[in-house]
Design a protein around this nucleic acid. Structure first.
Lengths: 242, 242
DNA sequence: CCAAAAGTGTTGAGTATACACCCATGA
DNA sequence: TCATGGGTGTATACTCAACACTTTTGG
């Protein structure tokens, strides 16, 4: 396999990359956007936050919130900015998910989109009012409407990632507020993973993980009161759970 | 947490994103580059391919090959193009790794870099001659020189990903040519993971995985001949191995 | 007292790990 | 014949999955 000198090489070397900085905009490269897939667990269902782009040719389509990145900010900052602009949320778990760059994904031009996965325990707060879009609302992940751009695929990738991470990390702590019952935690896992879990085995393992802290209070309802728990820390941790 | 209308919103909505397409270059967004971290297993060592950017202010620093993305191509295409331009390799395993977007990562301007992980079994071929850079060569991953940009971090992330994937996928098939011995395969795993493996247990598990196909030939050396194997398929597969 | 959800242990099967000796060859 | 790396099996500890009844409360 002999080395091949391609016409390709002219503009793309690191040297050119740097020289090009002086004439920003003159270099013919796609633009960068950041999109955010925000999940919350609410009413025993995993929900995703969608916005309806104001008047865009999305034609009544929904999409995950996002927008162009700016020069001088980090990707994380851009994601946090977009999250806040579309939902009002100031804090949420954020993790880079994947970058989509197909030139046809946005019919109006080549935009590379760095997609973030976001989790919140405050579903009611988010999207109560949305300054940036015509409207924003929560959809159960199994009842998503038609999505614009390549966001069907984005949704799929985000869900896969969340499912994977539930089993071997403590991400779940970002989907529940302090003071949840074991039953709620189990319903969260069952809803996201799409399968039933054995109550006793589930409880044993999460207890053994040491991630949970028992609160003094109990939740009282129509039936036997349930002990309340909180995650003892919310720093991301890799740990086999299931 | 009341919704906050930020000055942020003006330019970043999907609407603006599309409208902006007509005046490409006028929108103030970082440029997009694709970098490729190519690994090979050679002489019982995991090696990475580095290039010395021609005359750039890298100042004798090495870096992973890469360059600006072009409008109209996919990320995968860009990665394949860069790989070929810097190493001559036409085919290699390629997987998107992570996107780095810190505005200070390239001192000459804000460039968002989508980094790909690449694997090849043809270490000798790659970089035999390199059209695009002053020079390109292999470095053992434990003896990397100082790297330009944020490529120290990039190297770290790439290695972590490779380590992780060795244990639960068949990626290793992309690092060995057909006709390897079990000892070679085990050395590959030991070198990448940085720990010794039990020969019998290792062999049992890989046999049980069904990923390997025994070749009729044997490798003859100074000692007892060793049976040769190949991976029965190279399509990516998720499977617990260790 | 009844309905509904909370809480609790054991057993059997399968899997993971640790470990040591013989084999085939070229020099 | 010897040095070198190739090749093989078993016993034990542990981990995982399946499984059902009692408790507590509100209505």
């Amino acid at each position: 396999m002999p080395p091949v000198a391609e016409g390709d090489n002219r503009r793309a070397s690191p040297t050119t990359r740097r020289a090009g900085a002086r004439r920003a905009g003159a270099v013919y490269t796609p633009r960068v956007a950041v999109d955010v897939v925000l999940f919350a667990f609410h009413e025993a269902t995993l929900k995703a936050f969608l916005v309806e782009p104001a008047g865009g040719p999305g034609g009544g389509c929904w999409a995950f919130p996002g927008g162009l990145m700016r020069v001088g900010e980090t990707l994380d900052q851009a994601a946090r900015r977009e999250l806040r602009a579309s939902t009002g949320l100031r804090d949420a778990y954020l993790e880079q998910l994947f970058t989509f760059g197909d030139p046809t994904r946005d019919p109006a031009g080549h935009v590379v989109s760095v997609v973030y996965l976001a989790l919140t325990a405050a579903a009611e707060v988010a999207g109560a009012a949305c300054a940036k879009y015509r409207q924003g609302r929560w959809y159960g992940v199994s009842e998503l409407p038609r999505l614009a751009y390549d966001h069907e695929r984005v949704a799929q990738v985000a869900l896969e990632r969340l499912r994977g991470k539930l089993e071997y990390t403590n991400v779940a702590c970002n989907l529940l507020p302090d003071g949840f019952t074991f039953a709620e935690l189990e319903r969260l896992y069952a809803a996201v993973l799409g399968r039933k879990l054995d109550r006793r085995n589930f409880r044993r393992r999460l207890m053994a993980s040491g991630l949970l802290r028992r609160l003094p209070a109990t939740r009282r309802g129509r039936h036997r009161p349930a002990a309340l728990y909180a995650f003892s820390e919310r720093t991301p941790r890799v740990i086999a759970l299931l």
